[in-house]
Amino acid sequence: MSTLTAHHATITLCHRRDLVAHSGVVAWHDGHQIALFYLPGQPRDTDVPDRSEALYAVDNHDPFSGANVIGRGIVGNVGGERVVASPIYKQHFRLRDGVCLEDSEQPLTVWPVRFDGDAVVLETKTSEETK
């Protein structure tokens, strides 16, 4: 299902009931694996606009091990930053921008997601056709 807006197309990945509070799940999107982290009751991250509840989406692919496991990492803070720790070699990735705290040259791709009601939606690129 997809909805059209003036500038963005969105795709529904899953619903709130599919998420696990304070932890991660993984969604499939067009050949990509997207790890979704949901932090209910947490104030939203001011650096990220349009985010009514703390919801993050990053690549599920761990660049250090080569395995698709990021969605199974532990969520927490390091030095005040929200991060997920890779379950294999334990590197920390910042949830808001995917930067790896141990090695800034190996970031995770961040996906633009938000809640639309109970739906978790991914904003896709604007295209001429959707205008």
Binding site: Q42, G73, I74, G76, N77, G80, R82, A85
Partner: peptide
């Protein structure tokens, strides 16, 4: 202290 805990204190 802090917001969430981390991969050291949680386990």
């Amino acid at each position: 202290k802090g917001e969430l805990g981390c991969d050291i204190c949680k386990p």
